[in-house]
Simulated assay, not measured.
Amino acid sequence: MALSVSYGERYGWTVVQVAGEVDISGVAALRERLQRLITDGCLRMVVDISRVDFCDSTGFAVLVATRRMLASRSGLLRLVLPGPETHTRKILQLFGIERIFDAHDSVEDALADLRGAVPAKGTPPEGALPENALPEEADEPDAVEVVPRQREGSPVAAD
């Protein structure tokens, strides 16, 4: 399944929904999308990977880099993980995802403490952590189809 990324806003947080396979063939597109959102001023982000069928170490590295980039701007990141019995969740647990991230089982759980308070976009979150600290961490999203970049000379797969 091709990687797709959509995003929207809920309670002042950017909610990014990722579906498909996050591996070396599509990870650059995901990295670029997340970085662009942060540079555009999104300082509170929920990344929903509950519909990710596969995530390798390159995908995990993008999530870590996103957390670091947000932390350097006093931002926060929350993750929504795949179901507890899924293969993808088990692999991510081997990477230590629940020790590194503020992990939740649903977007609703990730945003439960935020209902009622909607801060302005670009405003640093109250209680934001220093750069090296781990964070304690929508309306209908705008759909964005992410197509992995191909190296020159690489065959392009047709859908």
Score class of each variant (00 low, 15 high):
9 E>M: 10
99 R>E: 11
158 A>H: 15
78 R>Y: 01
136 E>Y: 01
136 E>I: 06
12 G>M: 03
17 Q>I: 07
47 V>D: 10
37 L>N: 05
56 D>M: 03
155 P>C: 06
68 R>Q: 12
64 V>Y: 09
105 D>C: 12
6 S>P: 04
43 L>F: 13
115 R>V: 09
70 L>I: 01
84 P>I: 04
124 P>W: 01
144 V>Q: 12
73 R>M: 12
119 P>K: 08
8 G>T: 05
11 Y>M: 12
31 R>T: 09
28 A>H: 08
149 R>D: 11
30 L>F: 11
86 T>S: 15
94 L>N: 10
2 A>V: 13
104 H>I: 01
111 L>P: 06
15 V>C: 08
138 A>R: 11
107 V>W: 06
139 D>N: 11
2 A>F: 10
102 D>R: 00
80 V>S: 08
5 V>L: 15
78 R>S: 07
128 A>C: 10
42 C>S: 15
122 G>R: 07
150 Q>G: 12
96 G>N: 04
131 E>P: 03
79 L>H: 06
87 H>N: 07
42 C>Q: 15
70 L>P: 03
40 D>F: 13
55 C>G: 05
136 E>L: 10
143 A>E: 09
128 A>Q: 02
103 A>L: 01
155 P>V: 13
57 S>K: 08
80 V>E: 08
133 A>S: 09
127 G>M: 00
24 I>P: 03
60 F>R: 01
87 H>C: 02
116 G>S: 08
96 G>M: 02
76 L>D: 09
32 E>W: 10
20 G>L: 12
96 G>W: 02
105 D>G: 15
103 A>R: 00
11 Y>W: 14
18 V>E: 06
5 V>E: 08
153 G>K: 05
12 G>N: 05
43 L>P: 07
100 I>R: 01
5 V>M: 14
58 T>A: 15
67 R>G: 07
97 I>A: 04
104 H>Q: 07
24 I>N: 11
36 R>Q: 14
18 V>T: 08
19 A>G: 13
7 Y>I: 02
146 V>R: 08
42 C>K: 14
41 G>Q: 09
68 R>F: 04
132 N>T: 04
148 P>W: 00
139 D>E: 11
54 F>T: 12
149 R>S: 13
100 I>P: 01
53 D>Y: 05
83 G>A: 15
98 E>L: 03
58 T>W: 08
37 L>E: 08
4 S>L: 09
132 N>C: 00
31 R>W: 07
107 V>M: 06
141 P>N: 02
32 E>C: 06
7 Y>C: 07
66 T>I: 05
73 R>P: 07
148 P>T: 01
72 S>C: 06
123 T>M: 14
35 Q>Y: 14
53 D>I: 03
132 N>P: 00
96 G>R: 04
133 A>W: 00
15 V>M: 07
124 P>T: 00
151 R>Y: 09
34 L>Q: 09
81 L>S: 06
64 V>H: 07
40 D>C: 12
25 S>V: 11
67 R>K: 11
143 A>G: 03
111 L>R: 04
87 H>K: 09
144 V>C: 11
58 T>F: 11
2 A>P: 15
64 V>D: 03
102 D>T: 01
72 S>N: 12
97 I>C: 08
